Simulated assay, not measured.
Amino acid sequence: MGRIMEWAARGNHLGGLPRKMVIMAVGAFAKAVVALNTTSVHNANTLIRLVRSRPPGVPLITVSNHMSTLDDPLLWGFKGFPVFDANLARWVLAAEDICFKNVLLSYFFRLGKCIPITRGAGIYQEHMNEALERLSDGAWLHTFPEGKVFQEDSPIRRLKWGTASLIVRSPVKPIVLPIVHHGFQEVMPENKFFGRRPPFPLCSKRINITVGEPIEFDLPKLKQMAISMTRDLSSPTTDLPSSSPYGLDETAKRCLYTTISGRLQTAMEHLRTFGKGFLKM
């Protein structure tokens, strides 16, 4: 299967004007919604610094929990964030069945730097290669590794392997930054009106965004550990190819992705616990 409307996602499409218009319009929407709610952001400067001035050519992967269909773009609507700059704007993995239902939606979300992902199609689907190309360009990519919206106030769930695979396979080692938020589930609840989402975001809610510190992954060491741990084991899977450019067999790759996902989950859960302390004030 080819890439959906990839031409619309290119920065030079019609001179870049449609992208700039969409990014500015969505940014204004995010700013307005966040301003109509009580929003607190902890450690915002770390995120802003990495978006604006990380080393040239070094990609940034941000990961967060997923509490509503509006987490992106509302996450970036807080005061001081450069939400109107199309060059600095994140790329984001977006569910194909929600954001790419028809031609009009596909065009809009492509202009908004969204990469369609088919849930259940595995971590080696074609659009994951597109995400790797953006990382190769040194871009910023945001992911929701829980894989779907969860509006319950509960611990971070077991993460899907997609983000871990991007960290491992990225042509340039990325900076990995965890973010955890709370409150967007009240701004856009899933079952507010007769079992459906409200037609517009709600206001006068309390939003809390907690930005962590970059997580360091010693990938050579982690790969070697995965090989050692699985040397005498065999666990075939239909999702992972039999050959690997990283010197790992199927079982070792599963172990490596599980280890990285576990570290991400732990870091996100620590942020969630930390952020809950501010909600009680």
Rank of each mutant, 00 (worst) to 15 (best):
W161K: 13
A139G: 04
A164V: 04
Y124S: 01
P56Q: 00
T62D: 01
F78T: 03
D85C: 13
T143N: 10
S165M: 13
I167M: 08
D137M: 10
I167T: 06
V168S: 07
R158T: 14
G77W: 12
H142I: 11
G138W: 04
E133F: 03
N87W: 15
N102H: 12
E152H: 10
I156P: 08
L70W: 09
L104D: 02
K101M: 11
R169V: 00
W140P: 04
E152D: 15
I61R: 02
H142N: 13
P73L: 06
P73I: 07
R134Y: 13
F81R: 01
D153V: 11
I61N: 04
E133V: 04
W91Q: 11
E146T: 12
E133W: 02
R52W: 01
A95M: 12
E133G: 11
E133N: 09
W161Q: 10
R110T: 02
H127P: 09
A95K: 15
I61A: 02
L132E: 06
F78P: 06
L50K: 00
S165D: 13
P145G: 08
L105F: 15
G122W: 04
L141I: 10
A131L: 01
K113W: 11
T118C: 02
S53V: 00
G77L: 12
R134S: 05
Q125E: 06
V103E: 11
Y124W: 13
A121G: 05
L50N: 00
L93F: 15
I167G: 07
F109I: 03
L88R: 10
M67F: 03
M67H: 07
P59W: 01
L132T: 08
I98G: 01
A86R: 13
V149Y: 10
S136N: 12
E146F: 06
V83E: 08
L135E: 01
L135W: 01
S165H: 13
R54A: 02
I167L: 05
A121V: 05
L105E: 14
L132G: 09
L104C: 11
Y107H: 14
S136V: 00
M67V: 15
S165F: 02
L74W: 09
L93N: 12
I123F: 01
D137C: 08
R134F: 09
L141R: 01
R157G: 09
S64R: 06
L104W: 14
G112P: 03
G57V: 01
V63N: 03
D85M: 13
W91C: 12
A94N: 11
F81G: 03
D97H: 15
H66M: 05
D85I: 12
V92M: 13
R110C: 10
I115M: 04
L105N: 15
F144E: 03
T62W: 00
K101F: 05
P55L: 02
R54H: 00
M67A: 09
A131I: 03
S165Q: 15
H127E: 09
L132R: 04
K79M: 14
L60I: 09
L75I: 15
E126M: 02
V63H: 03
R157S: 09
T143R: 02
F150V: 14
K79W: 15
L88D: 08
T62Q: 01
P145C: 05
L50I: 00
W161L: 05
H127G: 01
G162K: 11
G138F: 07
R52S: 05
G77E: 10
D71F: 08
R157K: 14
